[in-house]
Each structure stands twice: as structure tokens, then as C-alpha cells.
Simulated scan of single mutants.
Amino acid sequence: MKTFLAGGLALAAALIAPTAQAQAPAKPIIVLVHGAFADSSSWNGVIPILRRDGYFVIAMENPLRGVRSDAAEITSVVSRLKGRVVLVGHSYGGSVISAAATGAANVKALVYVSAFAPDAGETALGLSGKFPGSTLAGALTPPVPLPGGGKNLYIVQGKFPAQFAADVDPARAYLMSVGQRPIAAGALTEPSPQPGWKRIPSYFVYGDRDRNIPPAALGFMAARAHARQTVVVKGASHVVMVSHPGEVAQVIERAAATR
């Protein structure tokens, strides 16, 4: 089985990924969608495990521009894949896969990794503030204006490790802070469309030391979605897939086995 990492433009993934399959694989295809302030490399610990266990994997680049437009990028690839698909989203990527699943009939399960699972009309910002505990606002740089309008958000590099990746090796957390991808401020306040988790089985995994999305909010969303499985990793930060790839891979494979 080949593993394709779409580290370039989402458009490139849309053109390459569907045609890279000779035939539909026996196991579901795993599509990984990163969140804000991260990139596809955040899945590097999870991918080898899934590949070893025989899964065809695609790590998509999430544009981080807006829920509906980002979901359209994901749907454009997923709807053309040959076979059943498990969509996996981290953080803001959960909002994206929730919307993308509605437009892709071949999605069989959703996995939320420290991720938002909004209902229609809800926003990522609103959900993160629904319960106390998020310290993200105090770790952000001043918004960066964009030439065409709107603003980008970044995490201050010096605050990134403690805020985002407190249980990750400091050297790696530093590299993550330097390579972080900004999210458009409007993406966090864009109301979500009807979510796929209302009809598709969902699975959740997150850490109890998440400082971006309060664990209480993550637990609330998991319960509301009637998650088939919820795994809370003790001591894990917001990037639980980086610090605990084995536990995250297990949840993804459990979702892939959904009947």
C-alpha cells in the first residue's frame, strides 16, 4: 500500500490522490485533516502505524480559510476516492470534516482528535468558550491584516510549546512553532453547516491537559454526538496525535472497523 502525504496545495491533492489508486483497497481509506497552527506533518507519528496495518492514508492540507470553503476542498478529494473513507480531523479540522462528510456519501466514520464537532450554526470560537479553561486568546499574536481583507492568527512562538504542545519534546515543539500555519480569524467565527456526525458514527480522542479547547468542551461534544468511543489521554496536550500517536491510531483503526 502506498501512503500519500498531500503537503502541497490542496488542489494538487485533489488531482493526484483519487487517481493514485489502482483499485478500491480492502480496508477503508484514512484521510487526515490537520487544524489551525499546524500542518500535515503533525500526523507523522500516526501515519507509519496506519500504513503498517495496511491502510491507504492521505494527509490533506487544510487551507484554514473558512469552514465551508475548507470543507469543499476536502470533499473534492474524498468524493472521488475509490472505497470507504474514515475522515480524521484535529482541532479546527473537526469543524471541516463535520461539514465535508455531509457532501461525501462514502464517509463511513468520523474521528475527532482534540477537535471541534459543531452543530449547525455553532462556531469554533463559541465552542471553545462554552466551558472555562482555554488560554489560547492570551497566546496569540496581534492579528495580521491580509492584502485582500481579513486577518491571520498565529500563536506567539515563545508561548507555543506551553500552549499547544506541552507534552512534546521541546526541540520538536520549537520546530512546530516556527512552521505553524496561520488560520483566518473569520474561520473561527464562521457558523457551521449541518454536521455529518448526526448520521455518521463518530469517535473522539483528546488529552485532559488541552489548553486550546477545554477538555470539558471536548467531552460535551463527544457526548452530544453519541460517540461510539471516547478516549481521554491523561497528561496529553492539544496535539495528542504528536505525543501519543499509538493511542490515536488505535481509535482511528477502531473507527475503520465500524460496521
Rank of each mutant, 00 (worst) to 15 (best):
G7E: 14
G8Y: 13
L11S: 15
A12R: 14
A13E: 13
A14W: 11
A17V: 15
T19F: 13
A20C: 12
Q21W: 11
A26C: 04
P28W: 07
I30R: 06
I30D: 04
V31H: 02
H34C: 05
G35V: 05
A36V: 08
A36E: 03
D39P: 03
D39H: 10
S40L: 10
S41Q: 12
N44L: 11
G45M: 11
V46C: 07
I47W: 02
P48W: 07
I49V: 10
L50Q: 04
R51K: 14
R51C: 03
R51Y: 12
R52M: 10
Y55N: 01
E61M: 12
E61D: 13
N62A: 04
L64N: 02
R65K: 14
R65E: 15
V67W: 04
S69H: 11
A71F: 06
A72S: 14
T75C: 10
T75D: 07
T75L: 10
S79F: 07
R80Q: 15
K82Q: 14
G83E: 07
R84N: 14
R84Q: 15
V86N: 02
G89S: 10
H90F: 09
H90L: 12
Y92Q: 03
Y92K: 04
I97G: 03
I97H: 00
S98F: 03
A99G: 03
A100S: 03
A100P: 00
A101I: 08
G103K: 05
A105E: 15
N106L: 04
K108R: 13
K108M: 12
Y112Q: 09
V113D: 05
F116M: 10
A117V: 07
A117C: 10
P118W: 07
A120M: 11
A120P: 06
L125H: 12
L127K: 02
F131E: 14
P132R: 06
L136V: 06
L136Y: 04
A137R: 13
A137I: 13
G138R: 10
A139W: 05
A139D: 09
V144Q: 14
P145F: 05
G148L: 15
G149S: 06
N152L: 15
I155C: 05
Q157F: 00
P161V: 10
Q163K: 09
Q163A: 11
V168T: 07
D169E: 13
A171S: 11
A171W: 08
L175C: 08
G179V: 12
Q180P: 01
P182T: 09
A184P: 06
A187F: 07
T189N: 13
P191H: 09
P193K: 03
Q194A: 15
P195T: 05
R199Q: 12
I200H: 04
P201T: 10
F204D: 01
Y206A: 00
G207A: 04
D208I: 05
R209W: 08
R209A: 15
D210V: 08
P214D: 04
P214R: 03
P214Q: 01
P215S: 05
P215A: 06
M221P: 07
A223P: 01
A225I: 03
H226P: 05
A227V: 07
A227I: 06
R228N: 10
T230Q: 07
T230N: 04
V231Q: 06
V231W: 01
V231H: 02
V233L: 01
K234E: 13
G235V: 00
S237H: 05
V240H: 00
V240L: 01
V242H: 02
S243I: 04
S243P: 02
P245Y: 08
G246H: 06
V248P: 01
V248C: 01
A249H: 00
I252C: 02
T258K: 01
